[in-house]
Amino acid sequence: MKKSIVLLFFFLVFYSKAQEKAKIEKVNVSRIENILASDDMEGRAIFTPGIAKASAFIENEFKNIGLSFYKDLQSYRQEFDVKGKSANNVVAVLVGQTKPDEYVIFSAHYDHLGLKEGGKDRIYNGANDDASGTTAVIALANYFKEKNQNQRTIIFVAFTGEEIGGLGSNFFSKSIDAKKVVAMFNIEMIGTESKWGKKSAYITGFEKSDFGLILQRNLLNSNFKFYPDPYPKEQLFYRSDNARLAALGVPAHTISTSKMDIEPNYHKVSDEVGTLDLDNMTEIIEAIALSSQSIINGEDSPSRVTR
């Protein structure tokens, strides 16, 4: 009896320590964000050396985390052709423990606008749009890998070509069986405070499935709030990379904080890391991790999107 109690004690201590290491660390969030939005990336426009550097950085992050390749790919690069030009998404996988054929996607776009033709500051750094979302995807990949409890398979995707029509997400959507995708968390511009202030974000297409209700329920005991998209006239649900899979019925929604009516640095060269609230951004990523748990663990399956 005593031996059993001792073994149970050591198991609980080990389990507790394993859970403690799975955290979203601000220092890591800041490191990733600053690299992706650095001048060295030259604005990350598709088909440029800058976006190639960004892709290589994301690939290396996924490698260091220890993620698997997507489907039959031989690397983290999902390459495709656009009118004779080469482009690529960056995709990685964390296989589910009991439901490997059910997928949950965390995504963001890593491309931006590149270089301005003239002026003292020519670089569209895209710190908020969407280095912030890509940072979140990498941080979440690290978190879920360390936690090592996902029952469903998690796919982490950094899309290219969002700024010129969602090219990357369109290609990716054709490579996956949409019926197996349980949910998609697309993350877009989370570096600034929402209209409600800190510890809050909104979900596009809130009324199109019960995805948002599940996330809200999972955050009931926290001080963070998810709200429905307050900018319906902007049609944000159809303007980001979630739209391609949503069109196939997937409960694919975008999480954002961007104040689309008054965001001062949107698509401007002034969208730099110094304009972001990295403390709040870290809390948003933590909230996404917490709110997704019942979906990741196979307990909840959001209703499908109907057109």
Results as ranks from 00 to 15, higher is better:
Pro251Tyr: 04
Pro100Asp: 04
Phe14Ser: 15
Ile51Val: 15
Ser222Asn: 08
Ile155Tyr: 07
Ser16Cys: 11
Lys71Pro: 04
Glu59Asp: 12
Arg44Trp: 07
Phe156Tyr: 12
Gly161Gln: 01
Gly249Glu: 01
Ile214Cys: 00
Lys179Cys: 02
Asn221Asp: 14
Val157Tyr: 14
Leu278Tyr: 03
Asn297Tyr: 10
Glu33Met: 14
Gly66Met: 10
Asp229Gln: 04
Ser194Thr: 07
Gly212Trp: 03
Leu7His: 01
Val305Phe: 15
Leu94Gly: 08
Phe211Met: 07
Ile123Cys: 08
Met281Leu: 14
Gly43Tyr: 00
Met260Trp: 15
Ser16Asp: 08
Ser55Gly: 14
Tyr202Phe: 06
Ser55Pro: 05
Asp129Ala: 09
Ile176Arg: 04
Glu20Val: 06
Leu276Met: 11
Leu8Asp: 09
Arg122Gln: 13
Val157Lys: 13
Val182Gln: 10
Ala183Phe: 06
His253Met: 05
Ile187Leu: 03
Arg304Gln: 05
Pro302Cys: 04
Asn265Glu: 14
Ala139Asn: 14
Thr306His: 15
Val93Asn: 13
Gly168Ala: 02
Leu245Thr: 05
Gln293Asn: 05
Thr160Cys: 11
Tyr238Cys: 06
Gly118Met: 10
Val6Ile: 15
Ile32Asp: 10
Pro251Met: 07
Pro100Asn: 07
Leu115Tyr: 03
Ser294Val: 00
Phe206Thr: 09
Leu278Cys: 01
His267Tyr: 12
Tyr202Ile: 02
Ile296Thr: 03
Thr98Ser: 13
Glu283Asp: 11
Val29Ser: 05
Phe14Tyr: 13
Gly197Arg: 11
Gln19Cys: 13
Tyr143Ser: 08
Lys180Tyr: 01
Val137Thr: 07
Ile46Pro: 02
Pro100Val: 07
Arg239Tyr: 08
Asp271Met: 06
Lys53Ile: 08
Ala45Ile: 06
Val104Cys: 03
Phe62Thr: 00
Ser4Pro: 03
Val182Ile: 15
Lys147Glu: 02
Leu219His: 11
Gly205Ala: 06
Ile123Lys: 03
Glu207Arg: 15
Phe226Val: 05
Glu234Trp: 13
Val182His: 12
Ala287Leu: 06
Lys116Tyr: 03
Arg239His: 10
Ile164Cys: 08
Gln293Cys: 00
Leu236Tyr: 05
Gln151His: 15
Ala183Gly: 08
Lys180Asn: 09
Trp196Ala: 01
Gly191Glu: 02
Lys208Leu: 09
Leu278Ile: 10
Glu283Thr: 07
Lys147Leu: 14
Asn88Trp: 11
Ala243Gly: 02
Gln235Trp: 09
Gly274Asp: 13
Lys2Thr: 14
Ser194Asp: 03
Glu263Thr: 09
Asn125Leu: 10
Ala178Asp: 08
Val273His: 10
Phe172Gly: 07
Leu36Ser: 11
Asn148Gln: 06
Tyr231Met: 01
Pro232Ile: 10
Lys268Val: 01
Ala243Asn: 13
Lys23Cys: 11
Leu140Arg: 10
Leu278Trp: 02
Leu278Gln: 12
Lys63Thr: 15
Leu167Ile: 15
Lys85Thr: 05
Ile187Trp: 00
Gly119Leu: 14
Gln293Gly: 03
Ala178Gln: 06
Asn88Lys: 14
Gln78Asn: 08
Ile24Phe: 00
Arg304Val: 02
Ser258Thr: 14
Tyr103His: 04
Asp300Arg: 04
Arg31Gln: 15
Asn28Arg: 10
Ser173Trp: 05
Lys116Gln: 11
